[in-house]
Structure formats: structure tokens, C-alpha cells
Simulated assay, not measured.
Amino acid sequence: MMKRLSLHKRVLLTGCSAAAIFAGTALAQGDEIIVTAQKRDESIQDVPLAITALSGDFTREVNLDDVKDLVKFTPGVTGNSADSFIDTLSMRGILTNDFGAGGDPSIGLFKNGLYQGRNGAVVTSLYDMERAEVLRGPQGFLFGRNAIGGAISVHTARPNFDGVSGYVEADVAERDRLFGEAALNVPLSDVFAVRFALYGGHEDGYVDNAYFPNNDPLIEPEKYAGRFSALYSDGPFEAFFTAEYEDRKQSGSVYRATEGGPGWDNLVDIFGVS
């Protein structure tokens, strides 16, 4: 018996960058949101761009645990699906569906200021976040190539010197869903602090396999991730280091070519396949 397609991804990311300061949660509460959409700290009201900014507290409260979930709160952006870690994000109708090793995206994604160049690395879990910014429209001037449709910039929570702190959260739901998230902040001195964050869980599938009805249901996510961050800040000098690992398993796409209809006939005419 054939088994259903399964996709398995492991990602290891390391990097050093200077991070910005983010304050506030919502303008409706009278707070000011500071963003770095133009490579400098400024109020979101002073940015002449179509931008959606979400604080880390907001992403956690509404359970945005994947970078594709930002689509839910961003007008003009589509492509949020759970059938694979290879997904198509469309921003104002501009998208990339070339998933080859040499394919370049049309929407640039940056994590802590570092460019993520391939879809396999782009689609990662959101946990222990500081903020997320989604900029619609061409951003080549500020973000470089591969940002013709726009740019998505996410920033993880940085260590702080306010004392030992942390949190633990659990998400329990139907289909035996159990996900957890935890973080611990530890200042080791007046100028050096570290932060640990963990995220992971599992959920049973919920889409029937029409082609193999006796197989397990599709869309069965299972992912585990961890992050270590360190911050050294002494006067005008500041250094930020982060190392992140993620192990993700889930079903492949539930969509298959029907081998029929005008769309399929056009592919046959173009590529000569049968």
C-alpha cells in the first residue's frame, strides 16, 4: 500500500545583528508603535508606507504560531495554508511559486534583520516574538532584491536586564492538539544577558484522504523549535547573537492534478507531457 506523502524539514539558523526597540501595542490604547521599516526607529504614523505592525504580545495572545499566520491580519496578502511548509505567499497579487533550489522569492522575509532566501527557511514558527512588520508594495530600495511584492520583517524577543523572568503556556484543543511555549530571561551581569525559548507540539490530521481513504487523515502538524539569544550592551556598543533550530514534520500538499480540464490540456500543449 502506498503511504501518504510526508515532508520533513530541519532548519538551523545563526546570526548576529543590531536590533531595534519596539514599544506599545495598539494606537487605540494611546500607545506609540515604533517600527524599523525604513531602517531606523520611528513611529508607525510617520512611515509613508503601507505597513502592518504586530507586537509580540499580540501574536501570542491570538495564537499566531507560524509566519504564514501573519496573513490573517494583513490586508492585501494571501497564501496562509497548512498543507505543507512549501507555500505560496501573494502580496497584492504578486507571488512566487517556484520552489526549486535556485528559485528566488518575490516577497523578501527578514528575521532579526537577516535575509531568508528560500521558502523552506522562510516558513518557520513564531514564538517568543518582539514584533512583526509586513510592508506591502516594492521594497527594493530599502531591502534589496527579491522584495518586488513587499517585505516581511520579524524580530524575536531579545534578552533584557530587568531581572530573571519567563513564562510557560500550553495550547490544548480537539484532535489531540497539544502545543507548548516557554521562555526564560536571565541577566548574567549589568551588561550581559541571555534568553532561552522553546516551542513545540503535535495535532492529529483532520483532512480525509480521498485517494487513500484507509490512510490517516492529512494535515497532521508536528514541530519542535528552540532558540538561544545573548545580548551584550555597554554604553554605545551593543552586540546581539541568536541561534535557532527547528524540526518540522507535516503532510504534503492535499492538492493533486486532475489530469483533465482546460488547465491540464494547456499544460500538455506547453510542456508536451501526458
Rank of each mutant, 00 (worst) to 15 (best):
L135N: 03
G93F: 11
G103H: 11
A50P: 05
V134S: 00
I51F: 09
G120A: 10
V47I: 12
K72R: 11
I21V: 14
L114S: 08
I34S: 03
G79T: 07
N97H: 14
Q139I: 02
M129I: 09
H155P: 00
A37P: 04
G76Y: 05
G144I: 07
A151V: 15
T96K: 11
P75V: 00
L64W: 08
A50W: 01
L13K: 13
A101W: 13
V62C: 06
I44K: 05
A50S: 15
G24Y: 09
D98S: 13
R92D: 00
T124I: 08
G102Y: 12
I94V: 15
V154W: 04
T88P: 01
R131P: 04
R60N: 12
D46F: 11
G103M: 11
E42Q: 15
I107Y: 03
T14Y: 15
K111A: 06
I152S: 04
D65M: 04
V11K: 14
T14L: 15
M91P: 04
G93T: 06
T96G: 12
N119I: 13
S125T: 14
G103W: 13
V123E: 07
A20R: 12
K111H: 12
R118T: 10
G140W: 11
Q38S: 07
T78V: 08
A151H: 02
P138W: 10
A147M: 07
A121I: 13
I51A: 03
K72Q: 04
V67G: 00
I152H: 01
A101Q: 12
K68R: 15
R145K: 14
L49Y: 09
K72Y: 12
A28D: 09
N63Y: 10
G24K: 04
G150T: 03
F85R: 02
T96N: 15
G76R: 02
G102R: 08
V62P: 06
G113D: 01
G144A: 10
S84R: 14
